[in-house]
Amino acid sequence: MRFRFQPPVQLSSSGHHLLPLPTPPPFLSSSPSLSTCSISHHHRSSRCTSSFGIAFDIDGVILRGQNPIGNSPAALKRLCHDYSGNLKIPFLFLTNGGGTPESRRAIEMSQLLGVKILPSQVVQGHSSFRSLLNRFENDFIVATGKGEPELVMSEYGFRNVISLDDYASYFDNIDPVAQYKSWKVRQESNMLPFSMKSIQDVSLDRVKAAFIVSDPVDWGRDIQVLCDILSSRGLLGGEEEHQPPLFFAADDLQYQAAFPSERLGIGAFRIALESVFNRIHDKPLECTVFGKPNPFVFRNAEAILRHIWAFSCHGNAIRPEDEDSSSHSFKTLYMIGDNPLVDIKGALQAGHPWFSILTRTGVFRQTENHPEYPADVVVDTVAEAVDFILERESAS
């Protein structure tokens, strides 16, 4: 198999593809105990002095399933001003997980953690797919994975996307064991209007690219249909030609979910698809992989943190006299993660100014540091990680 780690193809003048920083939405009214730790440009002179920022992994560090772990709510609240609720220390969440739009994920995390999280503070594995918009904006593409992959891609601006669930439904008997499956992957009410194509439209429209947005739900069906698409240049029943581009949001072999031991991730699905495809075709599968531990993900996170901090100091519009703040340089950026092969490896490869902190609440649970990808510091919980950072930076 030939696959590569792919940096974003659309770059800003600084060399990084930046995720848009939306205007902060209204505070959630459904959570009366919600701490309003938000991005604001008030008190600029006293607050625009942070020399460091923090990137948190989510699964195994902040949450296990839907439950906060490691005293994470209290740890996050320490990064906000008590008197105003505004950001005291710039931080974001850097995860290979996904399947939900960043806007919705921010709301979910705000409710779970009791701290106001904005969409600009949520960077998921598939967030980098935005960089492919100019290439595939109007092309017919297929997206698969748990959650709502079609909605994710449409919110990025892709105009002609269909979920693999819907795509497969247009072809009778494409899944030979569908009759034995007791679950229904998708409800009709969730289908987006522009995905309601006619059978003729789908059968004659060539798929220009396939996107694995998150962990697929029906591995057997997805492997079968993807092999059909990729071996026929995107037109089922066509002759074998060069395969359409295939993109993975991440490549985690395992991750920490609600179950006590690690679960197979999107990287395991890639291995399964590769194994099957390469056994039935002469040409090896080609794909492009995004997500941690790719160094460009960490460069992108640094750029986003700079913009978050600039927005916090100056508001949505950066004035010419404040341009030095929009290019603010952090002395240290902390990556707090639970997976040495993903979080720590990525921070090590990214180099300065990244400083890695490994927690024992997820994939990693050993007493000693990881031998191959040792973190700068190993702690038990994310709360201890924040304690260490604030003490080290004399910001407690």
Score class of each variant (00 low, 15 high):
Ser312Gln: 14
Met196Gln: 12
Ile174Ala: 13
His307Gly: 08
Asp215Gln: 12
Pro320Thr: 03
Ser128Ile: 11
Asp215Phe: 13
Leu358Gln: 06
Asn138Met: 09
His126Gln: 15
Glu108Met: 12
Arg130Gln: 14
Ser163Ala: 12
Pro20Arg: 02
Leu34Ser: 05
Ser31Met: 06
Glu150Arg: 06
Asp59Val: 13
Lys331Met: 11
Leu118Lys: 02
Phe158Glu: 04
Arg263Asp: 15
Glu137Ser: 10
Leu236Pro: 12
His126Ser: 13
Lys146Tyr: 10
Ala209Val: 05
His43Ser: 12
His41Arg: 14
Asn294Ser: 08
Asn190Val: 15
His42Cys: 12
Asp175Ser: 11
Phe194Ile: 11
Leu235Lys: 05
Gln6Ser: 14
Pro293Thr: 01
His314Asp: 13
Lys292Tyr: 15
Phe211Thr: 01
Ile54Asp: 00
Thr95Val: 04
Leu192Lys: 07
Thr332Gly: 06
Gly70Arg: 05
Ser327Tyr: 10
Ser163Val: 02
Leu230Cys: 03
Glu274Gly: 14
Pro20Glu: 00
Gly346Met: 07
Val207Cys: 02
Gln349Phe: 12
Val289Lys: 09
Tyr180Gly: 09
His370Tyr: 06
Tyr334Leu: 08
His126Gly: 13
Ser214Gln: 09
Arg360Ala: 15
Val115Trp: 01
Ala258Tyr: 08
Ser214Cys: 13
Asn160Trp: 02
Asn316Met: 10
Pro260Trp: 02
Ser31Tyr: 08
Glu286Leu: 05
Ser103His: 07
Ala168Pro: 03
Ile308Gln: 00
Tyr255Met: 03
Phe140Asn: 10
Glu240Val: 15
Gly291Glu: 04
Arg279His: 14
Gly15Glu: 02
Val378Gly: 05
Leu79Cys: 06
Ile336Asn: 00
Val342Glu: 01
Pro216Gly: 05
Ser326Ile: 15
Lys331Cys: 13
Glu321Tyr: 09
Val202Thr: 01
Val185Tyr: 09
Gly147Ile: 04
Leu253His: 07
Cys48Ala: 11
Gly99Ile: 02
His16Asn: 11
Glu188His: 10
Ser51Asp: 10
Ser38Gly: 08
His16Asp: 07
Ile304Leu: 11
Tyr170Trp: 10
Pro149Ile: 04
Phe388His: 13
His281Trp: 06
Leu253Tyr: 07
Gly291Ala: 03
Tyr83Ser: 14
Asp324Val: 15
Gln10Ile: 15
Met191Ser: 12
Asp322Ala: 11
Pro68Thr: 12
Gly346Tyr: 07
Glu384Val: 01
Glu240Phe: 10
Gly265Phe: 04
Val9Arg: 05
Phe277Asn: 00
Phe171Tyr: 14
Pro320Val: 00
Asn369Val: 12
Ile223Asp: 00
Ser45Arg: 09
Leu76Cys: 03
Ile89Pro: 03
Gln256Arg: 10
Ala106Thr: 05
Gly53Pro: 02
Cys227Leu: 04
Cys287His: 13
Pro68Glu: 08
Ser163Cys: 08
Ala350Lys: 01
Ser14Gly: 11
Ser325Tyr: 12
Glu391Ser: 15
Glu302Phe: 02
Trp309Ser: 11
Ile141Ala: 03
Ile212Lys: 06
Ala375Gly: 05
Ser120Gly: 15
Ala272Glu: 00
Ser84Thr: 14
Thr381Val: 00
Ser46Gln: 04
Val115His: 00
